[in-house]
Each structure stands twice: as C-alpha cells, then as structure tokens.
Design a protein around this nucleic acid. Structure first.
Lengths: 339, 339
DNA sequence: GGTGCCTAGGAAAGCGCTTACCTAATGAAA
DNA sequence: TTTCATTAGGTAAGCGCTTTCCTAGGCACC
C-alpha cells in the first residue's frame, strides 16, 4: 500500500505539503507542486489510510446506529430516514444489527465508542430487564460524558434525546376499531414479552377494552417473535384454544400476514369469518389480500428526526429532548363487522 | 476519553503491560498486575481507540460490502448470508448502499480501501457502461494487488472471485412456463436497461421464445426500476399499448406485485384474465393474492458462498473462481392457461 | 541598501496504540 | 560462588497521518 510518504517522495515534496494538497487545507500551495503531487497520487493509486487520518485529526465524524435488524422492513424504513439526514450532513453511518440481543447491544455501544463515532443512535424497543437497562444506561452516560451524542428511537428509559412513537395509542386505535365494529372476542398476537414495545401496544389495547366494557384475557394473548412464521403459529394456537374468536389483532404487520396465511390455509375467510388487523403499516400491508387494516407509524420520519437530534451539537444542556410521534389508523379490507 | 496511558498510570504499570493485559497477548503477566490494570479499566471505563489499534497492528480484519440497497429484500437476503459467514469468522462487516449509482460504487471501493478492509464484496448487477466498468475493474485490481481480496455477486465482468446466479436460465424458465401454458402475447416488465441483470434475464426469455417459435417484440417490453411503483406504472403502460396481452412477466417480484396491484385496481382477475410471473422468490411472493409464480434464486446461500470466497486466503493464484448457482421455477397461483 | 512583513514550504511533534527488543531479577546448573 | 537460562516487565520505535511552529526567500517601503 502506498503511503503519504511515498507520494511525497515521488513528487519531491515534504509529507506536510502532500497532505495539504491532498485534502485541501487552507494553506496556499503553488500550482506546480500541486500538480506534481496529484500526479504522484494518480500514479501510485494512493488512498489515505482512514485510521491514520482519524487518529491524527482526533475529530469524530461517523455516526453509529444500532438496530435490531436492518433487513426487517420496520428498521429498513427507519434506517432510510437516518441515512438521508446523515448523508445530507456528509456523515458516514455505521449500522449494527443487534438481532434483539441485549448483550450484543451493549457490545456494539462499546464497539462504536472504540470507533470514535460522534453519535450513537439506538433504534428499537427497550427490554424489560432491569439489569440490562441499567448497564446500557451507564454505558450511554459514560459515552455522553466523554462528548458523544446519543439519540434513541422507541424507548424512553434512557437519558439521551429520544423519538418515541405512540405505541400505546396505536394499540388503542386498533382495538377501538375492532370493538367499534362489534367484535368482543379478540385474540391478540403479541410480540416478545421482553420488549417494551409489546407491553405498550398491549396497554393501549387494554385501555380500549376497558372503555368498551371488555377485557383482554390472558388466554387470548399469544406471544410471538414479530415475524411471519411465528405469527402464523400463534394464530394457529389461538384458533385451537379459542375457537369462537371473531377477530385477531397482531402487534405488527409481519405477524398479521402470517396469520392471514394460516387462516387461508384453514379456509377461514377474512374479513367475513375473521377480522385481522396489523400494526406498523409496512409497504406489503397494501399488497396482501385482503389489504391489511393497520396502524401507521411515520418510520422514515422518525429516523430523520432522531438523526437530526443526534447531529445537533447545540444542546444547551437543558435535559433530554423527547419528540413524540403519533400513530394513525389505516382502514383497509381485513377488518369488518363480525358475521 | 481515557487512554491506555491513563489506565497504565493509574495501575502503576507501563503502557506495554497494560496493553498486553487488556487484549490478552501471549506474554505472561502476574495476576497482581493483571487485577490492578483491569480495575483501572473498569474505573475509567476505558475503551481502546479502534483506529489507533488498527493503525498500530496494521492488520486488516473488517470486510466491506457494497450493495445496491440493504433494505431491498433481495439484498437483505444476500446480506444475511454474508453476515452469517463473517460473524462465524469473527469479522466485522461494513455495509455500503450504492443506490445503484456507479459513481457511488467507485467512491465506496475507495472508502473501504481507506478503511483497510481485508476484503470487498460487491453485490448486485453490473452496468452496461464500458467506462465505468473499466474504472471499477482498475480500482479492484489495484486493491487486489495491495493484498485485498475481492468477491462479486451477480456480475461476471470483474476479475475477482464471483458467485453468479443463472439469470439467463431464470428468464428462460418463466418464459417457458408461460409458453407451455399456452400464452403467446406476453408483456415484459424489465428492470433498468443499464443493468446486466436485466439483459441476462431478458436473454433467457428470448431463448425460450425462439424455442417456442415466438418473439419478444420491443413494444411489449417496458423498462422499470425494480420497485413496486414503477412496476405498476409499467403494467399500466403495457396494458394501454397492447390491450390483448394474456400474460405479464416481471423481472423481479416487487414489480410483479406492483403489476398485481394495478390489475386489481382495473378489475382484471389473475390468473383468469391475465397471468403474472415474477422473479427472485422473495418472501412476500407467497403472501400476495394470488400467490406469485416466480423463479427462486438461493440468495442467502449466494451471500454465504461469496463471503467464503472473500475470506479464503489460500488462493493458489490459479485465476478467479466462478461459482454458478442455479435458478428454480416456483409454481404458485398467479399463472394459468389463457382464458 | 537596510528593515520589516508576508508567504510557501519543511521539520517535527504528536494522535493512541502495539511489539520488538532490552534489562533486571530470579533460579538452576556447574 | 560463578555462570547462564529464563522470565516479568519496561523502553522506545514505529503505524500513517495532521498541524503547529519555524525558516528562508521575496517583496515593498523608507
């Protein structure tokens, strides 16, 4: 690998001059030298060593992002928003998938800190795990104290700035919709029990139930993994245990689609024999049949806002900023009155 | 930020000893010192500066991956395979989205080189652009010459090792299926004209057409962008220009789904009034109605194989290794005999 | 022609770490 | 007792770059 010294030698200048020419410092340099150096760069196919540069300038620029899984459409959408803002500011984004593993999340915070990122954005649900939450909080605080910026999406239990979707309201909206349509025996396909997102969405559903004089009995709740396969399995379990259900609410669209697939395989028509609602309004929700009634969260927008918070250096130290974003019911064809 | 020197000072040892303890060198160290150093690390919340480490060891370990867009399910699946193998080998993966922009692709090769990655994996179609292809090839060669490893997925025009899906065969399979069902007026929703993937898949369709004594006239081919929206638009254009089509073949599933949506909006039933086939067999293909007949490419597997090639240091210099992977027709419900 | 000021370019001191090499102390062998 | 391995730990030289500070030359001015 050619180094800056090689380039300088070849051009017959000092490394200092070569450096100044190569990344345009404010120091003026004669055109003759400039050309010689640029020619040397070209001939040697020189690319500066990013680590050496970062070390020498000791100036943080990249942004670290920790998500559960970028290939999950939910996070893909958030990431899109994050990237857009970062790119506008000329910042590089380093993405880490925690695959919903708290331990990995902690490791990644450390890794990003080691890589001297200017900010860490943490997207995805929090965990019901006191010990982990405290550990993460400590790590983030340490990072902030040494000049790092932190922004979280979808969790409120940490100190940094936050963008929090109104999961509770979303749960309230889907449940209210079903009760309003006349359903009262509603099965729920929830997400992992460990996640606060699951709890929050369920809480909203419970509030709607109370308002409509109903309950959400535990036997009508199945916990799954926020993916299609487990959604289908949970739907099967629900149907077997409670054959008289008239509606199924899944706490995300992937699981709702899994449920739809299962119902189809059992010859149960939607929405005639069974209503189904999802959550998140991912793009596919429009393409399944029947098109999914769901709740929309402005995911890309949330990403943009979180990145904006993370990049905003002028924090006048007046405590964490919390931006709440609303949920919106999207009525499509998968929910109707009970037969 | 605490540095190694701080830790050493606090523990009353030299930086060398601290370094050896912190990342377990082979040098033996007394337990007493070890404990003092570890305590200091804990107290100072010390995290080594990754750039300084990388610079000092000048030993490349991370792997760079350039894809068109990770949030596109096609690349998400490939990336999953790449990550799995990389993780197994304890390698960090840096993912870059080129958004199908050749210029960005070149820039990212440079960036990854600057970051001293051990290998670069380039996934996604090649471009019909002589100048760019040559420029990329040069850059990759330079990188290889300085000890970097290169593996590409889905393009054959570069020197490194390659995993190439049989796009031509895939095109042949979907077209053959339609001809066998009795269709002869087939509309094609192609991908961007600039991409070799588009050309290859079309070539396969043309071969099938010839074998069945048909043609694929240019007026029945619409070029779109491999996404849902443009697929729907292309379907509309096709229908308007050629009202007597009996089948539409889209060169990926997203566009096929877009076409399905458009047909539904026009009240055209699938497969009765119109057959539709896709390409790639993304997970959603099963969930749309009717379930999509398509061609499966083992995407995650391709990712695994490419990463394996990239990590394999023992190249005995016997030229690039090319691994071909097959395409498989998946019959579902969206294609049937013409009415 | 001397003084001072501005300028382009170079010398060198780091950035935070790793590691080859050296040293001092210990114990075993003679 | 002397000699020599052997060992734990320290010293210092980089890794490849940036940037501060300095120098030497050129110019205008008196």
């Amino acid at each position: 690998m050619a180094t800056l010294a090689d380039v300088a030698r070849r051009a017959g200048v000092s490394p200092a001059t070569a450096s100044r020419i190569i990344n345009g410092s404010s120091k003026p340099v004669t055109d003759a030298l400039r050309e010689r150096v640029l020619a040397a760069v070209e001939e040697l196919q020189y690319v500066p060593n990013a680590h050496a540069q970062l070390l020498a300038r000791s100036h943080r620029s990249a942004i670290g992002v920790i998500v559960h899984d970028v290939s999950d459409p939910y996070f893909a959408e958030i990431t899109r928003g994050l990237q857009r803002v970062a790119t506008d500011h000329g910042r590089l984004v380093i993405i880490c998938n925690s695959y919903r593993d708290p331990v990995k999340e902690l490791e990644y915070v450390e890794l990003l800190r080691a890589h001297q990122v200017a900010a860490i954005v943490l997207a995805g649900s929090g965990y019901h795990d006191e010990e982990f939450t405290k550990a993460l909080d400590t790590k983030l605080h340490v990072y902030e104290r040494t000049g790092g910026r932190v922004a979280v999406i979808g969790r409120h239990e940490h100190a940094g700035d936050a963008v929090v979707p109104d999961n509770e309201m979303g749960g309230y909206l889907i449940a209210s919709e079903l009760y309003a349509l006349g359903h009262d025996r509603i099965g729920v396909i929830a997400g992992p029990k460990l996640l606060t997102t699951t709890t929050d969405r369920l809480a909203g559903m419970r509030r709607a139930a109370r308002e409509h004089g109903h309950k959400l009995p535990a036997r009508r709740i199945e916990y799954a993994d926020f993916d299609r396969g487990s959604g289908a399995a949970a739907a099967a379990a629900l149907l077997d245990a409670e054959p008289d259900l008239t509606a199924i609410a899944a706490l995300n669209d992937s699981m709702a689609i899994g449920a739809l697939a299962l119902l189809r395989s059992r010859g149960i028509t939607v929405p005639d024999q069974m209503s189904v609602v999802g959550f998140d309004d991912m793009p596919v929700a429009r393409d399944v049949t029947p098109a999914l009634t769901t709740v929309r969260l402005p995911l890309a927008d949330m990403g943009e806002r979180a990145m904006t918070l993370a990049l905003d250096e002028h924090r006048d130290g007046q405590g964490p900023r919390i931006e709440e974003v609303g949920a919106e019911l999207i009525r499509r064809d998968s929910a109707g009155p009970p037969r």
